[in-house]
Design a protein around this nucleic acid. Structure first.
Length: 400
DNA sequence: GTCAATTCACATGAAAGAGACCACGGTCTAGTG
DNA sequence: CTAGACCGTGGTCTCTTTCATGTGAATTGACGA
């Protein structure tokens, strides 16, 4: 055994990597030119163009599914503007914020605090009243006397947590600013997001709208080929690989990010299995592996209570495919808490946790009515889930 | 047999609490000259 | 006299609890044929 491992490692060390540059597959890697997005980039640039004359452009709202190049395109545009602004000495400042980042910008307070920090103010993580922080930000913008492009990525996450008041405050800002102005660029994955907004906010936030359509399989292939050229050694991938990755990704709403991940993992698997080329079976393995890893990752990063809940679900639903119900799970969960000295939560909370687990896609839960016998959630553990592994993982996490 | 009322077992919402953070201003304390 | 330690108050933020209300269809039971 030891010997075999040694041999493997030796040959591994000798063998040349299939990769040339792995970074090009990273989701944040920025290629020199975005393909199949020039039209959108041009539109955004035109919409923002007035800012170069220090006139306030319309606020822009951009939406499209994940992995359709929204963020990359915007960054591309703002980079260009930054360059021009620098060379022509136009006072433009671009701020990019992802509203989903925990503990950075996922609440109104944190958003304003973070924005103020962008202007070099030191802001405490908590402790000040929210309107105070907002005021600090207003003042600092006003005094800076600059045109500000404020890009809020995943803006739907922000309003989902805090309500649309934040956006209302932001859109109203310009009325109070005299020496500066702020141009908002909102980016959302949720196509219906605008409809859920307060009408006041909606009209001012989406003065201009832009839809990023999903890539089709051919476009994804182009993107993959482009990156593969940079990332893999020449001839490292077989002919069918790229189309297959593209097909997988296109099937799932044209997510380029996912296609790239698939290609990278395929490469890693090929490398690990000591083959000299990436072939289509590697892609199949990769697809499978990504799914499983994602689930395991999601589970292990869950808080203890959610893990306990999931453990209860898996333990209760021993006979495969047979649904379990909230009540049963709660009973099991209570005894589990006794064993693990975990403070038992109320059923109300457990119910929420279960639906969170459903959102994560780990389990399938839907509300059904059993007529006379009440209404409950029917929970099914998907057969694709690797229950033994997960159970072991959870037992470890919960010290069972 | 038909149909509305009933009933179950939770789901779902809203509000409020607990406890961990943190800033700020006032008071106390010990070290300094 | 002053810097720093130490409070108390008031703020945010997350996770929960409490209380209240909602809900969909199997079941029941009254009613009529």
């Amino acid at each position: 055994m030891q010997n075999e491992l040694m041999k493997f490692l030796e040959s591994y060390a000798e063998k040349k990597s299939l990769f040339l540059e792995k970074n090009v597959f990273h989701p944040h890697y920025k290629p020199s030119a975005l393909i199949h997005r020039s039209e959108q980039i041009e539109q955004v640039a035109k919409m923002l163009a007035p800012i170069l004359k220090l006139e306030k452009p319309s606020n822009i709202f951009i939406y499209g599914k994940t992995g359709t190049g929204k963020t990359a395109s915007i960054k591309d545009v703002t980079d260009c503007f930054a360059k021009i602004a620098e060379s022509k000495k136009i006072p433009i400042k671009t701020i990019y914020l992802n509203c989903k980042l925990k503990h950075v910008s996922d609440t109104e307070y944190r958003l304003f605090a973070q924005l103020a920090r962008e202007f070099g103010k030191t802001m405490p993580a908590t402790g000040l009243p929210t309107d105070e922080v907002a005021k600090v930000f207003f003042e600092v913008v006003e005094n800076a006397g600059q045109a500000v492009i404020l890009v809020l990525d995943e803006i739907d996450q922000l309003t989902k947590k805090t309500g649309s008041e934040v956006l209302y405050n932001l859109t109203r800002m310009n009325e109070e600013l005299t020496k500066s102005f702020v141009c908002l660029v909102g980016i959302s994955n949720d196509l219906n997001f605008v409809d859920t907004l307060d009408p006041r906010v909606r009209s001012s936030l989406s003065e201009e709208e832009l839809l990023f359509p999903p890539y089709n399989a051919v476009q994804i292939q182009d993107i993959l080929n482009e990156r593969a050229k940079l990332g893999f050694l020449p001839d490292a991938i077989e002919a069918g690989v790229v189309p297959k990755c593209a097909a997988y990704a296109a099937r799932e709403h044209g997510d380029a990010r996912r296609a790239l991940e698939l290609l990278r993992v395929s490469g890693e698997i090929a490398e690990r299995s000591n083959s000299t080329k990436v072939n289509t079976t590697h892609v199949d393995y990769a697809e499978d592996k990504i799914d499983r890893d994602r689930v395991l990752e999601a589970i292990s990063t869950q808080p203890k209570q959610s893990q306990a809940a999931l453990y209860s679900i898996i333990s209760t639903s021993t006979n495969k495919e047979a649904p379990v119900f909230t009540g049963t799970i709660y009973e099991f969960y209570k005894t589990l808490c006794e064993r693990t000295e975990l403070r038992p939560l109320t059923q109300r909370r457990l119910s929420d946790i279960i639906s969170e687990l459903d959102m994560l896609g780990i389990i399938t839960a839907r509300v059904i009515s059993k007529g006379r016998y009440g209404r409950t959630r029917e929970i099914i553990v998907p057969s694709t889930l690797n229950t033994p592994t997960i159970k072991k993982l959870l037992e470890e996490a919960l010290n069972l």
